[in-house]
Design a protein around this nucleic acid. Structure first.
Length: 1000
RNA sequence: GCCCGAGUGGCGGAACCGGUAUACGCGCACGACUUAAAAUCGUGUCUCGCAAGGGAUGUGGGUUCGAUUCCCACCUCGGGCACCA
């Protein structure tokens, strides 16, 4: 018997596959295509740990199965090598970043090569290769030369927009563009000087130049995306290096991704991605439907606009808040004596906000001295400045009301008048309400009663329900609510000498009245009484039996009081109430009085729009993406500025615009990129910013389709054949970055017919992390990294692969355990030994039919589980099969070969060797994938579980098709069942092929 | 704060659509082989109980003949967003 020598076997077959080009993929194939893609890595200098290949192994297993299933599989690998880490490394070691990248790529490939991944290495791409980034620049220019035409809902050439301007100006243009655009006619357009034309077009382009407040990191000398900034105790810091980050206004390039907000949202529906990632993207896009209201500023010709999505309470609005950095603020203050003071304070507010770590709950604000009148008739409302109004969301001005937590808190702090238009409806035990019954309405009172000398309030404890409430009761006919309250207090507590302090606002309650079996809708009039003294009359026995009268402190009450509405009454009495933002009965406008605010929301919107009081508007949280870095190591932006500042794009022939050598990669620290110190570069007027890290990764998957093409980013027929990625595997940390940006670019390309699908990645799976044994993240910096090279050396690549797939669910983050890996090694060794045994024969006379059933069931399960990326259960089912085969006297060679085939994607080397030892001359990795034999899976005999009252009491073998009556007869006399059913059977539940439950 | 997701043996985890909870693996215990150990193979391994039987899937309740699975409340952990009107 040969010894299992993983080193020899793995080396041998890796060489053979390589020589025979087993994984080479052709673009000219009649087979159906399948594109399995890994998120390409950033080749870092520190090398891999065992966590890195997990995703690659998963996608490799999947790609191997698809290949064996007869698909033409595209499974490539490449490098995303622009960006900060390589540049940092270059600065630290004073070498060209390109050298660092080359070195790191070599290390990376050496480490990957021993794992046996089935990539077509001939298609490898590298974003820093000029032949690659030529096309990144080309696509950039395409986006730059586009605007978004909302009328046809797609990107169109800017030339078309210029034609429209020349013909009829911009009034009728329906575009996604800068919100601040003056209307001009065709004549006015033609008269504009070139620079003004350029500036105007910039407001429409999908890639545009502008100024923005950005996360500026002085130490790194660059701008960082929000997801590259982390919060720390000392304020925001860079993800890399942990250097301080501040806000700064800088010239930037942007991508108008917001033009695609809706398509990015809608497109999610058709994708086979995890619900979790879709949810993250959905929240990130943050669609919100609302209304725009206008208001006239008093003693001025200004009109201000506000956006609201909680417009059902718009008649409660009592003040405005404008963002402190709003461009209209200075204009608003024009001619006001407090102008300078307000602007100074506004500046302070902005600065305070920018200094992170400040507690924004502590909102600062200042009154502008201006009032505005809204068209709803809410009166003259003061305009305040506060940082919670965001200049980039909605209109930058908020109309505020008592029915918003933040507005409410702000108003309380600055003593601004509030008004409520919703009377709260509290629902007690919503699940108990009977949806079939109508609501029976009742009028009632509730009273907060203060003790005559102590700081205590009267609470009633209901003996039956153990509820604690204030005095409460129904209103009789011919009684005012106040009379009812006084009567109820007397009846329930005996106190008579009381004085009304306040009439509290009404509220309502819906609940299920258990004794009467009714849905109740009670309308409460609420009062606050104070007792003058303890004078009391006798109360009836029927009352004392029901309840007990208690005096409690506020803290005690808060702990035990049952009705929500009464807690609110107490808060109003104490002045500690919060905004009510829930559902309730509207008191205004008159047309909707008495109706429920949540219910009439849509109706109110229509009504307001119809009356011309508001306009519908959709807002998104998502902002345009900054597309520039003040660094060296990125794709140059292929644009040239002349002396007048006119921008010229580089013609396609001149692409790629190659990064020039520089003396120092050190950031200048002024915000300008090292390119600013290259004389020729500046003389030529080239843009000194470079593209951000996400440029190349936004389209690289298209380059794999035709990686060597010199005439296009990929040949049309290649794009038509490969279409898009069928299965994409990578980390979920890219949810709001790469995965969104690539979808955006893909949609732009789709609008031009340059790609054929709306979405780039049809299915997406996210591998979980492998944590270190100590529970922390694995990494060099923690000193807990396990090198895959060591594991491959000791246990073999097949063992590593099987173990990483067997550890647990693919998407879960799990701790590494070098102890547990021996289980996977034993499994492979047992497979090996089994293959060497004499009991595997070509002609076996007696084959256990149960083994055949198990074999084919296993094939079926592996098939299903692989589609679901449930690799861990694939392996466990194959282990079960192996356990069973080991118990057999003899096994048919054909059967064992089926097992070897389904194991092959997980452990390709050892299975290839076994296949070869069995006398085959073909490559196992290219063999057809087995199908489960349906006839062999069919079970004729099944085991029923017998339960009595849901508890397992026995088992019972029977034909699969046994009828309920037959089963009943058969088991009634079984002794272990008989003893339970002597008292008679109430119910007999029969689940075919599975279970019988007898209720006694 | 808001929005997701998850909580099952000593450990990693399994359980399809509501139908035998703890598959598979690790570990541990015992046994076989061995002078011995390792490796390998075999047996056992949630818990209380002598047994009959009872109790366990974060906690408490509900729906159901039957709940890890569905519903409600709470606790803990992980992730996303964070003044988004």
């Amino acid at each position: 018997m040969k010894i299992y020598d993983h080193k020899k076997i793995e080396k041998k077959w890796q060489t053979v596959w390589d020589k025979k080009k087993a994984y080479k993929t052709s673009n000219k194939s009649k087979k159906k295509k399948y594109y399995v893609l890994d998120m390409f890595p950033y080749p870092s200098g520190v090398g891999l740990h065992v966590g890195h290949p997990k995703g690659y192994i998963g996608s490799d297993v999947f790609a191997r199965v698809k290949r064996m299933q007869g698909f033409n599989v595209l499974h490539p690998m490449g490098y995303d090598a622009f960006g900060l880490p390589a540049e940092q490394y270059a600065i630290e070691h004073n070498i060209n970043p390109r050298q660092a990248v080359e070195k790191n790529v070599k290390t990376f490939e050496k480490q990957l090569s021993v794992i046996g991944l089935s990539y077509d290495w001939d298609r490898r791409v590298n974003t820093t290769d000029p032949e690659f980034y030529k096309w990144t620049q080309w696509i950039f220019l395409r986006i730059y030369n586009s605007w978004y035409n909302k009328s046809v809902d797609k990107a169109e050439p800017i030339k078309k927009l210029i034609k429209i301007f020349e013909k009829s100006g911009n009034e009728k243009v329906n575009a996604v563009c800068d919100s601040n655009i003056a209307i001009f006619t065709a004549r006015e357009w033609k008269l504009k000087p070139p620079k003004q034309k350029q500036d105007m077009l910039m407001k429409y382009r999908l890639a545009y130049e502008g100024y923005a407040q950005v996360n500026w990191c002085p130490k790194l000398g660059t701008v960082l995306a929000n997801d590259e900034v982390l919060d720390s105790s000392s304020g925001p810091v860079s993800e890399r290096g942990g250097y301080p980050v501040e806000k700064k206004d800088m010239r930037q390039w942007f991508m108008r991704i917001t033009a695609y907000a809706d398509r990015l949202l809608v497109g999610l529906d058709g994708l086979n991605w995890s619900a979790h990632i879709k949810e993250i993207q959905k929240n990130w896009i943050g669609k919100s439907e609302g209304l725009i209201f206008s208001a006239k500023v008093k003693e001025s010709d200004m009109v201000i606009k506000t956006f609201s999505s909680h417009y059902q309470t718009c008649y409660a609005d009592t003040f405005f808040v404008i963002a402190p950095d709003h461009p209209l603020l200075p204009k608003l203050l024009e001619g006001r004596p407090e102008k300078d003071a307000v602007l100074k304070k506004a500046k302070e507010i902005v600065e305070k906000k920018n200094k992170q770590g400040a507690d924004y709950k502590d909102i600062d604000g200042i009154f502008t001295g201006r009032y505005a009148t809204d068209s709803l008739g809410n009166g003259d409302l003061p305009i305040w400045v506060a940082s919670f109004a965001l200049k980039d969301y909605g209109t930058g001005i908020v109309k505020c009301s008592a029915h918003d937590e933040r507005d409410f808190a702000f108003a309380k702090k600055f003593n601004i008048k509030l008004k409520e238009v919703v009377e709260p409806i509290f629902i007690a035990h919503a699940d108990k309400l009977d949806s079939n019954l109508p609501f029976v309405e009742r009028n009632a009172i509730s009273a907060v009663i203060k003790h005559w000398s102590e700081d205590k309030y009267l609470v009633i404890k209901w003996k039956k329900t153990n509820w604690y409430t204030f005095v409460t009761g129904g209103i009789k006919n011919n009684e005012t609510p106040e009379q009812a309250a006084i009567r109820e207090i007397k009846e329930e507590t005996g106190y008579t000498n009381l004085r009304i302090k306040t009439v509290l606002p009404p509220c309502h309650s819906k609940f299920y009245h258990i004794p009467k079996k009714q849905n109740r809708f009670a309308h409460f009039s609420n009062f606050y009484f104070e007792l003058v003294d303890g004078q009391k009359v006798e109360i009836s026995n029927t009352e004392t039996e029901k309840h007990e009268v208690l005096w409690m402190t506020i803290d005690e009450i808060r702990k035990c009081l049952t009705p929500e509405g009464q807690l609110r009454d107490l808060d109003i009495v104490l002045g500690t109430q919060k905004a009510y933002i829930g559902n309730g009965m509207l008191t205004e406008p008159e047309e909707f009085k008495g109706r429920e605010s949540d219910e009439v929301r849509e109706e109110i919107a229509e009504w307001l729009v119809k009356k011309g009081l508001a306009v519908k508007k959709i807002n998104y949280k998502m902002r345009d993406a900054i597309f520039a870095r003040q660094r060296y190591w990125g794709e140059p932006i292929p644009l040239q500025y002349d002396e007048e500042g006119i921008i010229r794009e580089l013609p396609e022939k001149k692409l790629p615009l190659v990064l020039p050598p520089v003396k120092s990669y050190q950031p200048t620290g002024t915000g300008e990129s090292p390119l600013g110190s290259v004389k020729d570069w500046v003389k030529n007027g080239y843009e000194t910013n470079t593209m951000p890290g996400w440029a190349g990764s936004s389209w690289y998957f298209l380059r794999y389709m035709d990686p060597k093409n010199k005439k296009a980013f990929a040949n049309k027929s290649a794009i038509k054949y490969w279409k898009n990625v069928d299965m994409y595997v990578g980390g979920q940390e890219h949810a709001t970055g790469h995965l969104l940006y690539s979808r955006f670019w893909h949609k732009v390309l789709k609008d031009y017919g340059l790609v054929v699908t709306e979405e780039p990645f049809q299915s997406l799976r996210n591998q979980g992390l492998i944590m270190a044994a100590d529970g922390r993240k694995m990494g060099k910096r923690y000193g807990n990294a396990i090198n895959p090279d060591d594991i491959v050396k000791t246990f073999g690549a097949d063992t590593l692969r099987v173990y990483e797939m067997f550890m647990g669910p693919f998407e879960a983050s799990l701790p590494w355990s070098t102890d547990n890996i021996v289980g996977s090694r034993r499994f492979i060794e047992r497979v090996w030994k089994m293959s060497q045994k004499m009991k595997i024969l070509k002609n076996v006379s007696k084959i256990d039919p149960k083994l055949e059933t198990l074999l084919h069931k296993t094939i079926q399960k592996v098939n299903n589980d692989i589609e679901n990326f449930a690799f861990n259960t694939c392996i466990s089912s194959m282990m079960i099969l192996l356990n069973e085969m080991e118990k057999q006297e003899n096994i048919h060679k054909k059967d064992f070969e089926l097992f070897v085939k389904i194991l092959s994607p997980f452990a390709p080397h050892v299975t290839e060797q076994i296949w070869h030892d069995f006398g085959h001359t073909t490559l196992l990795v290219l063999e057809p994938w087995p199908k489960a034999d349906k006839n062999k899976i069919k079970e004729t005999e099944v085991t029923f579980v017998i339960q009595i009252n849901g508890k397992v009491r026995g088992e019972f073998q029977a034909k699969a098709e046994i009828s309920e009556d037959e089963a009943r007869k058969a088991i009634e006399h079984m002794p272990e069942i008989k003893k339970w059913i002597e008292g008679g059977i109430k119910r007999f539940i029969f689940i075919p092929k599975k279970l019988i439950n007898i209720v006694v």
